[in-house]
Design a protein around this nucleic acid. Structure first.
Lengths: 205, 205
DNA sequence: CGCCCTATTGGCCCAAAGTCCAATATCCGT
DNA sequence: ACGGATATTGGACTTTGGGCCAATAGGGCG
C-alpha cells in the first residue's frame, strides 16, 4: 500500500553503477542510479522510502560529505557506504554519523543485499515513527494558545484548580479548555495524552 | 561525590600497555591495566564508572569477543578499540555492536584522550539513566501482585469502575489498591506514573 | 456592520477519584 | 496457634473532573 522502497545508488564509475543496479534489480528492488553526488542531491526525494548506496570516493562531494549534506537537510535515509580504498578512520567516522553499513569493494553480492534489505527495514520503521510524530504535531497545531497552555498543566499533573490559579482564571474555564484539548488531541485519558506528548518530544529540553 | 571513573586498558603487549597507562594517568585519569581479556574479565567491576580501552588483536579472547562477552553480561561500559592491523569490516562490526570508538595504532595521544573523555561522559549518562530505571524497578518490586495489576489498568487509562469489572472485584477495592500503588511508586499524579512507566520500559514488548 | 473564532464565566448535575476509619478472610511462616 | 502481609469490602464524605446549555466580550474578516 505504501510507496515501494527505492534504492538510490551513487557511484562515479558507470560500470560499477550498472553492476550494482543490475544486482539489486535482479533481487526485485526498484533502483535509481546517479553518477555524482550533485546529481543525486538534485533528484533525491526525501519522502521516498528506501535507502542509499554510496561510493565513498567520488569527485566533487564525496560520500561522507553527502552524508553530512543529507543529515543537514533533515533526511534520515539509511546510507550504505561502499569503498575500494577506504581506511578505518573513514569507516568509523561514517558509522558514528549513523551510516547503516560500510562495505569494502569488491563487495560480496550477498552482503550488499542483506545490508540493503536491513536498511530498507530500518527506514520503514523510522518513517513510521516520524509519521506518528507528524500526526501528533498536526493535532497539536489545531490547539488554541490557551488549550496548549492547559495541556502543559495537565501533563505536569496539576489539578484544574491549580492551573486556574496559575493562569488567573476560574476553574470552570480550565475544564472547558481541557475538554476541547482532549477532544482535539483525540485522546480519552490523561495516560494516553502523556504518552502522545512523550512520543512527540513535548517537554524535552 | 560518585566513584571516580576508571579507565580499564587491555593490551597483551606490556610496553604498549604501560605507555597507554602513562598517557592517561598524566591526564589525571585513574587507570587499571590488564594483559589479557581473561585477566580483565576476572577483575572488572561492572559497577565502576569509566570506560575500556581494548586492543583488538590479542591471544585468547580478542577484542571483539570481549566486547560480546561484556554485552552478554549486561555491561554497557563504553569500549574504545585500538588496532595495529585491523581492517574495515572489523571496525564496522565493532561500531555496529556499540563501540565508543575505533582508533588505529600508532594512536594519536590527543585522539585517544578525547575518545576516553567522551566515553567517560557517555558512561556517566548511561549509568544515571540506568540508576533511574533501577530506582523505579525497586519501587515496582514493593507492589503486591494486585497493586501491580491495578497499576496496569491505570496506565491504560481505564476507570476504576472498568478495572473493577475486569478484575471481578468492587470499585472500592480498586481505589484502595490504587492509592497504595501511587504511594509506593512515589508519584502524585497519573501523568507522573505514566512517565515513570515509560522510562522503565513498562508495557514495552 | 454582521459573523466566526477564541476566551471567558455561570449554573446544574452527575460521575469519578480520593480520604478516613473500620472490619473480615486467607495464607504463610515461626 | 499467633502475628503479619495481602486482599477484600463497607460507609460516609469531600474533592475533582466532565457534560450540557447558555451567555458575554474582543478580534479579525468579508
Amino acid at each position: 500500500m505504501p510507496l515501494p522502497p527505492i534504492v538510490f545508488i551513487v557511484d562515479d564509475e558507470p560500470a560499477v553503477l550498472k553492476g550494482l543496479a543490475r544486482l539489486l534489480r535482479a533481487a526485485g528492488l526498484a533502483v535509481e542510479t546517479f553518477l555524482s553526488s550533485q546529481d543525486f542531491l538534485e533528484h533525491f526525494l526525501p519522502n521516498t522510502p528506501g535507502c542509499v548506496v554510496l561510493d565513498v570516493a567520488m569527485p566533487g562531494l564525496n560520500g561522507l560529505d553527502l552524508q553530512k549534506a543529507l543529515a543537514a537537510k533533515g533526511s534520515a535515509v539509511p546510507i550504505i557506504f561502499l569503498t575500494g580504498h577506504g581506511d578505518i578512520p573513514m569507516s568509523v567516522q561514517a558509522m558514528k554519523r549513523g551510516a547503516a553499513d560500510f562495505l569494502t569493494k569488491p563487495v560480496n553480492d550477498d552482503d550488499l543485499l542483506k545490508a540493503v534489505r536491513a536498511a530498507i527495514g530500518t527506514d520503514r520503521k523510522t518513517r513510521q515513527a516520524r509519521a506518528e510524530v507528524a500526526d501528533i504535531q498536526q493535532r497539536l497545531s489545531t490547539l488554541t494558545p490557551r488549550e496548549r497552555e492547559v495541556m502543559d498543566h495537565v501533563l505536569s499533573g496539576q489539578l484544574n484548580k491549580q492551573s486556574a490559579a496559575e493562569l488567573g482564571i476560574v476553574e470552570k474555564t480550565i475544564k472547558v479548555h481541557r475538554a476541547r484539548m482532549m477532544e482535539k488531541m483525540k485522546v480519552h485519558s490523561v495516560a494516553e495524552l502523556v504518552r502522545l506528548a512523550e512520543r512527540a518530544g513535548i517537554g524535552k529540553k
